[in-house]
Design a protein around this nucleic acid. Sequence first.
RNA 1: GGUCCGGUAGCUCAGUUGGAUAGAGCAUCAGCCUUCUAAGCUGAGGGUCAUUGGUUCGAAUCCAAUCCGGAUCACCA
Length: 609
Amino acid sequence: MQDGCTGNLYFYGFETPDMSIIEQVQQHAIECLKALYQGDFTEKDFQVNQTKPEFRGDYTVVLFSLVKSLKLSPDEIGQKLGAEMARRHPDTYLGFNIIKGFLNLEISDAYWVQVLEKNFDDVCFGKHPMNGKKVMVEYSSPNTNKPLHLGHLRNNFLGWSVAEILKANGYEVWKSSIVNDRGIHICKSMIAWKLFANGATPASTNTKGDHFVGDYYVRFNDEYKKQVAELMDSGQTEDDAKKNAPIMLQAQQMLVDWEKGDPEVLALWKTMNQWVYEGFDITYKNIGCDFDIVYYESNTYLLGKDLVKKGLEDGVFYRREDGSVWIDLAGEGLDEKLVQRKDGTSVYITQDIGLAQQKYDQYKIDKSIYVIGDEQNYHMKVLQKICEKMRMPFAADMHHLSYGMVELPSGKMKSREGTVVDADDMVKEMEQVAENKTLELGKVGDFTESERLELYHTIGLGALKFFLLRVDPKKKMIFNPEESIDFHGFTAPFIQFNYARIRSILRKNEIPKAFEQPATLLPLERELLLSLEKYPVIIRQSAQELNPSLLAIYAYQLAKTFSSFYAEHSIASAESHDKKRLRLMLASMTAQVIKSALQLLGISVPERM
RNA sequence: GGUCCGGUAGCUCAGUUGGAUAGAGCAUCAGCCUUCUAAGCUGAGGGUCAUUGGUUCGAAUCCAAUCCGGAUCACCA
């Protein structure tokens, strides 16, 4: 599903999107250096940064790296370069100064105003034209024996957001999920249900399906622990007790029966999985996740066997005496890895190879992204290496978007030990906090009941998503349930609040027609424009790095700049007609970009709050 | 033990293709609502960028070693 922004904006080859100002500065500098010094210069020869606030200027060329090759002082290079850039592009540069090897360039007001005039009402501003590339983002990929928890939320928010960010960069994107619907963990819930439920169902107990099944998973572990303790009391070692506990043996037998296709086991399996799916659907809908393709492991777990055969023939794999099949990756700094058991059944990685191939065959994707926790870094490295060794054409374009675990102050969350923060509870709690704060502030007196609920959802879920997305994905993060997530400062509600303030103004004021005379920009107006102008670059960067936190940080920084601007200058009662028009346009564009950036994070904005 | 990732303010985090006096938020303190929504604005305090050495005009960023924390190295998924 595309948003209408990336489809037909440009005809390939005829029109290219405008260069951002930072790219222009770079090009201008290259062009002028060539003219001045007759050498070959590229972007790599010098850096362009945003000018630090304590100096005059907008963008800065760092001159030190040019000193050696030109054999001139930074000051001399700066003077010549600055003058030449200003001479050649008088519409862009207002002036320049050189301080300690830094060439600070002031961009002209006219340039900034033209950026504003051109883009202030463009809902597609910042998004890039279609590039003809197809990419699949696999994310979420839940187990069906327990409900989603906070860690899954990080995965879901990340995956969804990265997919949207790629769309905004012109990719055709499929969101997919591989549901882990078979295996010993499901059998554990099944056997516990059989033993203890007396035929109870989610409906009969008025419980959400995934929680219902999850409860039996916990029940299994309780019983298991009890049985292990009993066996140990009767003299068995811990290892033996763990192996011999009757309920574990029953679960394992159930898995064997499942693989044999025992109708009774299959029926129960289908029923319980269905309960879980009904629960997941509610959660996914509530948190705004969607998928274009859903794979089920029960359908894919046999994939890859043919590839193992082929790999054996090609000498990529080898067979041991006992019949098991391996690959030797010791040369790549990895280990030897099993790809097929001695009994001929496949292991996890076998189906991963098969599914990777299937994705490529079915959808002709150019890039395949896997959103999977960093505990599987090794596994994913092995997978990619195997695909590479098998000369699969897509091997180089597989990308593991590895993210760190969400931990509690007490350490890792463990479903088995019940120390998890449940996803549904978490969302509900955030909505509750949103409600409390909103009522405290007394701003929704005239809202209808459903408007109120929608607002609490927007704010509460927004705060949660932002909290999880604002951190660099690859870093682990700590969540403290004692201190509930803040609604002040570096948060979604702050950004949403600024959006609502702008909307409030725009409801009451129309943007007047044209300027009567060119406006001169005040520092905060200029700062806001500088920030707005960066948006397309940020969208591109977050796609390149597969990192939504760049957008989150950007959206906050933009909202913060607006907030200062708002406190300092009146918009509706500006000192002149021109200023009023300028500021309304600024406000309008800010709202537009905030909405767009948050939307890429999966966060919506309220018209009032 | 091998491999990989991380260590920045009391807390949670930015900042790493090497650039100016290392930045935000929370918490603390001091101001600011008769004017567009104070979920706000302005300001203050708070740092041995884990440690040591190296590379150079310049290092939180690169290299080496060390310390601390985590992940992973299953005929589990």
